[in-house]
Design a protein around this nucleic acid. Structure first.
Lengths: 342, 342
DNA sequence: CTGAAAGCGCTTACAG
DNA sequence: CTGAAAGCGCTTACAG
């Protein structure tokens, strides 16, 4: 026995069989007899044989590894997506290597290069905020490494995408506010350079239009990052208005929570005077008082869907066929106290 | 040129040099002349040469890959630790492959086996709640794969550990409650089968003792998971007491927030009647009203420290020397409204 | 059903 | 400073 690890060759020598036979027996090749398989597997177990999958990957060109690039792992949304990715990948026999771009284009480019050397079989990525150029990703494409984008996805670049229906979700949330009697509905909007936030604004507009309500520019407060602090700032501006809104649809939960707190403090009754809806279903949305009506963003399912799509593309053998897919997950509106007017 | 990727051999042929020279030039081997290095690197760039690091790993037995096992990625604490691990590892040229045990011993065992076949050079792990037997990890040890544990660490098993000082942190938090005038301080305790929660209880006890206060068994409410719901339950029990506590030290933030809300509703003034301190510094602790005094658990730094320790152990060449380390990070008490009585 | 042989793309002693 | 050669531990056509 060589020092340390037992290799497949060691096993072969031990059993008086060819290495090729051992290899096939261990991977349940149909040509090998059941008897041999059993002998080999038992002996492998006894000797504590651990296959070196790096050697196997090197030889077979299959690493069964997926690269994931997110802006930050500790952003709750991303950690949930990653959890979904890991879960589905694990069940499918793939493993997941994670990198953070910190929203830097330079770092994203570096990571993509590393991913290439690591021979990952596919990549799931949420673009860095800074990324405007996609050459690094097109290059991956040329190397036939499938990619799936989520959340922040490239425009003008044909590829695989997984998203929720931001437009429809916002439409539903806004219509819900209308249904509970709101007539002056404001929108706290996200950065309009990001597609999903544009869509959330569009959904809001469409719901108003379809219900015969006028869209007004001054009902939109646009923020940079939809941060808690920006939410407080929006609340301040709203409270100075001659006419308060009677409904607010916020493009995320942080701003919604912030506004709820400011309004609570100002003695404004939620939902009686102002109904508020958010977006994401972050843990805090059910803890805040009143609890927040919000859109469940299904981050975990997005991760699962992304992994599923990616692995299908990896395992599809038709290298010539390029069929990019865009998966859109349905969301649900979770109605809580902040809009329960009736 | 072979179809698809350019290999090191292709480069060698192209330049009329030996593959060994190319290999050395690319890795800045001191024996190679600057002129040759430049020629090689420039040509590599031109031809779009991407080194196959799987081949390199296979040959050199260095994968520069670290396995990370956590119960769940989407638990905020773990996602922050992972973020710290990734950050430090990336800077050190290592990459991080992540697995979730879902607190299952069986799955943890499976993952450890996979990690062995993947030839990771080290493992960072937060034990599954279920894990009582450590044979799978001892086996890793025998294979000379360094391990670092964090948060939930094995007892009676010599290894590397990274933790915060739970005892000291709880002592400080409790003493802070005493300093602001509390005399009937209750403790919401975590599951006592977990080391860190035992230590938090101990710290609480010690602070009482050192300040001449009696420890009373009935001042301890023990929970299973320190969940938000269990916090509400604790609050209910506290509110039924003939004498309310005047201070509560909670072993995490969820229970603290839950109690704050219940007390708010019951018309009990925080901090005037009851001062409350938590543990973790979760985002919600600064949003809740009144904002929560809590211990910053330094999860990101734990991840960094774990990665740093692990990588040092990987790169230490003295295979014969076994020097297990335990790193304890200092925490800080973040004082907010919930204890500001003076 | 089993085996002999080639080779994946690198790195690394050894030699000069 | 550069090169020739061996080989890491597997898998996979090819052959019988």
């Amino acid at each position: 026995m060589t020092k340390g690890r037992v290799t497949l060759k060691d096993l072969a020598r031990d059993l008086g069989l060819a290495p090729s036979t051992i290899s096939r027996a261990l991977s349940d090749h149909p040509a090998i007899s059941e008897a041999t398989k059993k002998t080999v597997k038992d002996r492998a177990e006894e000797l504590g044989f651990t296959p070196n999958s790096i050697a196997a990957s090197f030889r077979s060109k299959k690493t069964r590894s997926i690269g994931v690039i997110v802006p930050r792992i500790d952003v709750h949304f991303h950690s949930r997506v990653i959890s979904g990715i890991e879960e589905f990948s694990y069940k499918s026999g793939y493993h997941v290597t994670i990198f953070q771009s910190h929203d830097s284009y330079k770092r994203e480019k570096e990571i993509v290069k590393i991913l290439q050397t690591k021979m990952v079989e596919g990549v799931i990525i949420c673009l860095a905020m800074e990324s405007r150029i996609f050459d690094h990703l097109k290059r991956l494409n040329n190397l036939k490494v499938p990619q799936v984008f989520y959340d922040r996805t490239p425009e003008n670049f044909l590829t695989n995408k997984v998203n929720i229906d931001d437009y429809e979700s916002s439409y539903t949330a806004t219509e819900h506010l209308i249904d509970v009697g709101c007539r002056r509905i404001f929108h706290i909007a996200g950065n309009q350079s990001t597609g999903i936030f544009r869509k959330r604004l569009e959904g809001y507009k469409a719901a108003l239009a379809d219900n015969g309500m006028m869209f007004r520019d001054d009902f939109i407060l646009t923020t940079k990052n939809l941060s808690y602090e920006e939410g407080a700032d929006c609340a301040r501006r709203l409270l100075q208005l001659p006419d308060l809104p009677d409904g607010i649809f916020c493009a995320n939960d942080y701003t919604a929570v912030s506004i709820i707190q400011a309004f609570n403090k100002a003695g404004i009754k939620i939902p009686e005077q102002v109904a508020i809806a958010g977006f994401s279903n972050y843990p805090i949305s059910r803890i805040i008082e009143p609890s927040l009506t919000t859109v469940n963003d299904r981050a975990f399912q997005m991760g699962e869907a992304a992994a599923k799509l990616l692995i299908r593309q990896i395992e599809e053998d038709d290298a010539d066929i390029i069929d990019y897919q865009t998966i859109t997950l349905k969301t649900e509106l979770i109605v809580r106290e902040s809009t329960k007017r009736i």
